[in-house]
Design a protein around this nucleic acid. Structure first.
Lengths: 198, 198
DNA sequence: CCATTAATAGAGTGATTGCTCTATTAATGG
DNA sequence: CCATTAATAGAGCAATCACTCTATTAATGG
């Protein structure tokens, strides 16, 4: 008999996913050929389809791997003792993910895919909903503590999300300035959440 | 001899562009086949390529037609007597274009295309730059009139743009509420531009 | 050290792609 | 009413696509 080493298998799988992410970010789902993924990953097509049944499944994997990690952070933020600390945890997480150079391309590819691929749409909506739920719960607590939010907790949560969505898109700009962006992002979030300051 | 009627020609061309826009918004550039455009426009492939040399050119036309109309509005806004009125004109224009149901799909398609198609990248960057220049000039005048902007004029202009970019993406959501969205958008712009109020 | 089977490569396949070419129709000017 | 040519359709083509199939290698457990 020969058994499968789950650790080695996961590693090889992750290597393919990483190569695919680069291609998808640059060319979108339909613009990426399975041959291009193979070339970048340094494998043959037989190997690729040994790990994933279809190209679509590779695309799903790129995101669901990431969403799992994010869900853990959302959970942690909600259970924070101070609501402010929880919000800060979420904002930090988002600011960090802004640093990923693949982010704008992957985001654009995801928007298009969500239209045509119902399963992927649900995947994406799930992550959005989890983040919004976490933000909303924290904002509700802050409002109860006397913070004057710009809008209701749920709508303010949406705006924070939207702000980051927009920033993801902006990271593709040639003159994008990460540190100025992060500072301004935090200041805007502060305004949305009614934090005192200049 | 037989001459070409420029008006009829433009009309037929516009019909193809409209059909193509719908396909591109739903499936992206690579996900849209020229056959699909023909089907939707109700024409044969021979006709399609009689009006446009390549699929890429059709995609460019979808945007450059729109950018021309926008450029005229930017121009009008900058030459407004009161800077506030000019800004309002721009915001109104953006809010109106948010109503286009194709907006989020086209935006996603555009982001991906900009990576791989240098000419299109310049086209897109040109419109962005024109809008930002108009916003910046108006904000500079407002700052000189005593308005206290959230950031410098140029960076505030960027944030206004980004806010709308984010809203374009949001219009794809199932529970998108246009009127609440517009109200909140204006309130956020008011904050960014230091307008007094609640 | 052998049986088993996971891992891999790459040639091959039918379907689809963007686009060309040819033929036909119909509108215009004289 | 005819010559000219814009407008249109659709068959056809080389290239590319996602994916399958077969063969080979190499790692594991007994």
């Amino acid at each position: 008999m020969r058994t499968v080493d789950p650790e080695k298998h996961a590693l090889r799988r992750a290597n393919i996913v990483a190569a695919a992410a680069g291609e998808f970010a640059a060319n979108g789902v339909d613009g990426t050929s399975t041959a291009a993924i193979c070339r970048r990953a340094g494998i043959g097509s037989g190997t690729l389809f040994h790990y994933f049944p279809t190209k679509r499944d590779i695309f799903h994997a790129v995101f669901s791997d990431d969403f799992e990690r994010s869900a853990a952070i959302y959970e942690e933020a909600v259970t924070a003792f101070r609501a402010e600390a929880g919000l800060e945890l979420l904002v930090d997480h988002l600011v960090v993910s802004l640093a990923d150079p693949l982010a704008p391309g992957l985001m654009a590819a995801a928007v298009l895919q969500a239209y045509r691929d119902e399963e992927f749409g649900r995947l994406l909506a799930g992550d959005e909903a989890r983040l919004r739920a976490a933000l909303t719960r924290l904002l509700e607590r802050m409002a109860a503590d006397g913070r004057r939010l710009a809008f209701g907790p749920d709508r303010t949560a949406r705006w924070i999300q939207r702000l980051f969505d927009a920033s993801f898109l902006a990271t593709g700009d040639r003159d994008y300035d990460p540190s100025a962006q992060a500072t301004e992002l935090r200041k805007t979030v502060d305004w949305l959440t009614g934090r005192q300051g200049s």
